[in-house]
């Protein structure tokens, strides 16, 4: 045996990505290496720390492989936020492949401390709300919504909602008690958090673009990778890249199905905003995009090009 990879991440083991991607990925690597790369799986932050610490843990060698959201550490990976801008994503499988291409073009510097295995997004996020539901921009005014990342909270604010920041575990409790009126998340997360049981309506949008998504990274410690003999490096390389990113994206898309099913079976109100209304939302959210581009320009990056490229890359994989 040449290596035992300590894999660390924040979700419980039965969640879709750990169950259908991370562990199968590790098994695949084990098999293709003839058992020479084994692994130990540590779900639910068992090796200590809060989820935002995961990136440093893999950089510093506390763990060998991690899965996390760069958005947990706002300001540190600004380039990834292109994918978190309003109305960027299509399905996760296509968007994740685009994310890989975008990573290769723009994010190598941001992630230079680690060996990136895959980058991906979740499926399109939507609004899950109590009460009559969000059928127009007006319904959103003053609504207390919980958003997951810096960009999403900015978007909610610019749309007129009151963003409420809180840790994810507090969401079900706060929903059931009316501390918040709703939350934005993809279907995939609604099942484990039992969100469908706590809200009355789900709002999605017309057209091929989803409301928002979040950017994820699956990465390996550089020293761990460098210490492998060449044939084992190749096993890791073979299991990295666009195809691997596509795989996680597909798992995310498949993970959406049970959440949607539960909500449908409960008879929750399914709202799809028509094209005219969707266009109003896009217009209202435009300042967030402009603001991000300006921010990137200030940092000496070409914000407009990054935004346009991300959009075009998503388009390319979505049209196939």
């Amino acid at each position: 045996q040449d290596a035992v990879l300590k894999i660390h991440q924040f979700l419980p083991a039965p969640a879709p990505v750990p169950k259908n991607f991370i562990v199968p990925w590790a098994e695949k690597v084990k098999e293709e290496s003839g058992g020479r790369i084994d692994y130990e799986f540590y779900p639910s932050m068992q090796l200590g720390g809060a989820p935002p610490a995961l990136y440093d843990q893999v950089r510093d060698g506390v763990a060998d492989v991690i899965w996390t959201l760069p958005g947990y550490t706002p300001g540190r990976f600004p380039g990834t936020e292109a994918f978190e801008l309003p109305f960027m994503p299509t399905n996760a499988e296509a968007t994740s492949q685009a994310a890989w291409d975008y990573y290769e073009k723009y994010l190598q510097d941001e992630f230079e401390d680690v060996k990136v295995i895959a980058v991906h997004t979740h499926g399109p996020g939507l609004i899950h709300a109590k009460g009559d539901g969000v059928e127009s921009l007006e319904d959103l005014q003053g609504m207390k919504l919980r958003g997951p990342t810096r960009m999403v909270n900015k978007m909610l604010e610019s749309l007129g909602a009151t963003p409420v920041g809180m840790p994810v575990p507090a969401v079900p409790e706060s929903l059931s008690k009316g501390v918040i009126d709703g939350t934005v998340i993809p279907w995939e997360v609604t099942a484990p958090l039992k969100v469908a049981e706590l809200v009355d309506s789900h709002t999605s949008f017309s057209g091929d673009r989803g409301f928002y998504t979040s950017f994820f990274i699956f990465a390996m410690n550089k020293d761990t990778y460098d210490a492998l003999p060449d044939d084992l490096k190749k096993v890791i390389d073979d299991n990295s890249g666009r195809e691997t990113s596509k795989w996680v994206g597909r798992v995310m898309d498949e993970g959406d199905a049970p959440g949607l099913k539960i909500a449908t079976e409960r008879g929750n109100k399914m709202i799809v905003l028509d094209e005219a209304e969707t266009a109003r939302w896009k217009e209202a959210a435009q300042p967030v995009i402009d603001g991000w581009i300006a921010e990137m320009n200030e940092k000496g990056m070409d914000g407009q090009a990054m935004y346009d490229d991300a959009k075009a890359m998503i388009e390319q994989y979505s049209s196939n």
Binding site: T73, P74, G75, R76, T149, R150, N153, P163, G165
Partner: peptide
Amino acid sequence: SYNETTMILEMPV
């Protein structure tokens, strides 16, 4: 060195 901020306030960590 990483300019990490909080989510809502964007207060430096």
